[in-house]
């Protein structure tokens, strides 16, 4: 198998050097996410921060609960549970009741990871499993987007009692994708770039998400093929549609910057556990996501398709891996 990233080369022992790899990568991703997260909190206020904390708390608690007593330090120490909760939190509406975010985090780790045998065994991106569960469970709360507002005013829905509905008192506003789908209104380029639009709390600031991605690429924690492939495929596909009927379909720039496209392409699709191993497979995976996103957004029932696109391609990842295995040289044909 060709290694696409020499820094992660798995060598025969001694493997002492490898021990720190997971925690180091995880921490790099934390650093990369920090600017976009701070921007999200800045735009949507302290309530968004609480939602994020609840999601992380849910993820960490379940990880703690299901890890063997003797190994808890390692299970929690690698930081992956925190990252899962964090990523999930970034995909949530900023005024979501905290208890829902907490359940989302718990499901993300419980059904998205633990049940598969822990880190490395899961087929689907855990954060997106949590989000898919939340979207199917609380469809209204999960699609109630609030407009960016005052930093210190926390929407009362955030503090809704467990199992109770949140009363959304903040100003609700359709997300850019919702506006596009249901009202054919395109949000401006700079609003999308800097994040002053409604949406989930970590997806709005395109520029900072890209910056984080560049940092990860520079640290070699990220396979550049995936975000590049996704964005390229999505932009090409939406350009074609845009050329066919500019009034009906969004343009390529809007497609690339709106919704969870950047967050998903840079931070979620690139999860090494759930993406293919070979370069060729990686391209197939990335292009598949790019096409599916636009397909779902334009022709599907939902305004956003990033989550389902990634989950669908996660599902076929083992298949992609199997069919893109490079030939093993030096062996007979029949020995396989």
């Amino acid at each position: 198998m060709t290694q696409k990233d020499p820094k992660l080369l798995i060598q025969p022992g001694p493997q002492l050097r490898q021990e720190m790899t997971t925690p180091v990568v995880m921490r790099d991703v934390w650093y990369a996410l920090t600017p976009a997260t701070l921007a999200g909190i800045w735009f949507f206020g302290l309530g968004a921060f609480l939602v994020l904390l609840a999601s992380i708390a849910g993820a960490v608690l379940v990880e703690w609960f299901f890890s063997p007593q003797e190994k808890r330090r390692y299970f929690l120490g690698d930081g992956s549970a925190i990252l899962t909760g964090w990523l999930l939190g970034l995909t949530l509406p900023p005024a979501l009741p905290m208890w829902m975010a907490f359940i989302g985090g718990a499901v993300a780790i419980g059904l998205g990871k633990t049940i598969w045998g822990g880190l490395g065994g899961n087929l689907f991106n855990p954060a997106l499993v949590g989000r898919a569960f939340l979207l199917a469970t609380f469809p209204i709360a999960m699609t109630t987007w609030t407009a960016p507002g005052d930093f210190f005013s926390i929407p009362s829905s955030v503090f809704a009692l467990p199992l109770m509905q949140g009363e959304v008192d903040a100003l609700t506003q359709a997300s850019p994708l919702g506006l596009m789908k249901f009202a054919h209104k395109e949000t401006g380029f700079f609003d999308l770039l800097f994040g002053n639009t409604s949406g989930s709390l970590g997806e709005t600031s395109g520029l900072l998400l890209i910056l984080g991605g560049v940092y990860l690429w520079w640290r070699r924690d990220l396979d550049w093929r995936i975000p590049v492939g996704i964005l390229a495929a999505a932009m090409v596909f939406s350009s074609i549609l845009f050329l066919i009927d500019p009034d009906k379909y969004p343009g390529p720039i809007f497609s690339a910057l709106s919704g969870g496209m950047l967050l998903g392409a840079i931070y979620m699709a690139t999860d090494p556990v759930t993406s293919p191993l070979t370069p060729k497979g990686t391209w197939i995976f990335a292009i598949g996501i790019g096409l599916l996103v636009i397909l779902i957004r334009v022709f599907g029932g939902f305004p956003e398709g990033m989550m389902y696109a990634i989950l669908l391609m996660n599902a076929v990842t083992p298949l992609i891996d199997r069919y893109t295995q490079p030939r093993v040289f030096g062996r007979g044909l029949d020995s396989k």
Binding site: A141, A160, M164
Partner: peptide, 24 residues
């Protein structure tokens, strides 16, 4: 639905877990 045998358990503000009623 926040109910058991049709009796409401949590009052009118209960947020239903839609997924539970569905096949998944």
């Amino acid at each position: 639905e926040g109910k058991l045998l049709g009796f409401s358990l949590f009052g009118p503000n209960f947020e239903p877990w839609v997924i539970m009623i569905l096949p998944p």
